[in-house]
Structure formats: structure tokens, C-alpha cells
């Protein structure tokens, strides 16, 4: 055994791994990591439309909300469909014969939105997002999407809501 080998402690001889080499990340390894991240993003981007394509649409049918005499012009009322308290809806009376129903959750961070009849806007008090009460489109603020809207049907002073109104590209914020 040479003199040099005698100087090496036993623990060092058993684990001959240099810290510098072990911690070294080559550029190719770094780019491989970025490529892996890119693959994950591509997978997520494919998964969303695939999931939406096969997802069954929620059907409400006709749900009785109340009577037309319950609400004055400019009034607002919160209700739940089929006792599902996770998703509140708001019934608004814009004019004598103009009724609208929207989901009462802001599309930004799900705060409860309120109808302001004086300003003719639906307002989110959390981050000052404003929606158009005519079609639920975003007027101002951080909400990325319009409020989901339900179709209102009036039958002999009784208010019913049916399925969701399909959003047009123009109403998109």
C-alpha cells in the first residue's frame, strides 16, 4: 500500500463520491427537466378538453323559484337548486317583465356577487369586479369569465329556471 493510500480515511475510501460531481447539474440535464415540465403542461392542456368532451352536462329541467309578486323591480333574491348549497343562484328583476338568473359566485374567487340597481351592475365586493346584468359579461375587474346564466321561464306568475344559457364569444370577458 502506497503512502498516499494510507492517508485516505476509511470512510472516504468506502464512499468515493465527490460533492462537486454529485451536485453538478449539466445543461443537458437541466434542459431534460424543462422538457419533462413541457410534457406535463401538454398533458394538462390535452386533458382539459378531453375531460370536458366526455363530461355529462348538468340538466336542471324546470325548477320553481317563486312568484312574480315576490320581488319588486330592482330586487334580488338568492335561491338554491335541488338544495345544493354549494352553488347559490340569484334572481334579479331588471324591469317589470325582465327577469334574469345568474350563478351568485364571482368567477374570480367565488365571492358572492350582488345586484346594484342604481348603477345597473352586478358587483363583486371582494375585488371590485363588475358584471353586466343583461348577459353576465365582465365589465371591469379581475373576473376572467362571465357569470353563468340560467334561462327564466314565466308561467302564470310563476317563475321557473331551466338550463344554462350558452355563452357567446362576444359576452366573454
Amino acid at each position: 500500500m502506497s503512502e498516499d493510500n494510507k492517508k485516505i480515511p476509511a470512510w472516504k475510501a468506502d464512499f468515493p463520491i465527490k460533492k462537486r460531481e454529485a451536485a453538478y447539474v449539466s445543461r443537458k440535464e437541466f434542459i431534460k427537466l424543462i422538457t419533462f415540465f413541457s410534457g406535463t403542461l401538454a398533458l394538462a392542456n390535452v386533458a382539459i378538453p378531453a375531460f370536458n368532451f366526455f363530461k355529462e352536462e348538468k340538466e336542471i329541467g324546470q325548477y320553481f323559484v317563486g312568484l312574480t309578486t315576490d320581488l319588486n323591480v330592482g330586487g334580488m333574491r338568492t335561491f338554491y337548486i335541488n338544495e345544493d348549497h354549494r352553488t347559490p343562484y340569484m334572481l334579479i328583476r331588471l324591469a317589470e317583465d325582465k327577469w334574469k338568473v345568474f350563478e351568485q359566485k364571482c368567477t374570480h374567487l367565488s365571492c358572492s356577487v350582488l345586484y346594484n340597481h342604481n348603477e345597473k351592475v352586478i358587483e363583486c365586493p371582494c375585488h371590485h369586479g363588475f358584471f353586466n346584468p343583461e348577459d353576465g359579461s365582465v365589465i371591469q375587474g379581475p373576473p376572467p369569465r362571465p357569470l353563468p346564466q340560467l334561462t327564466v321561464v314565466i308561467k302564470e306568475d310563476k317563475i321557473f329556471v331551466t338550463d344554462f344559457v350558452k355563452q357567446t364569444a362576444e359576452s366573454h370577458g
Binding site: I48, P49, N52, F53, P144, R145, Q167, A169, H172
Partner: peptide, 15 residues
């Protein structure tokens, strides 16, 4: 944009 069935075309092209 495309968390629902609307705008599926956008999400398809994006994918």
C-alpha cells in the same frame, strides 16, 4: 376560457 363545454374549439387548438 374552456372549463365548460363552451369554447371547446379554443381548448382543442390550444392542446
Amino acid at each position: 376560457k374552456a372549463l365548460d363545454k363552451e369554447h371547446l374549439d379554443f381548448s382543442t387548438y390550444s392542446a
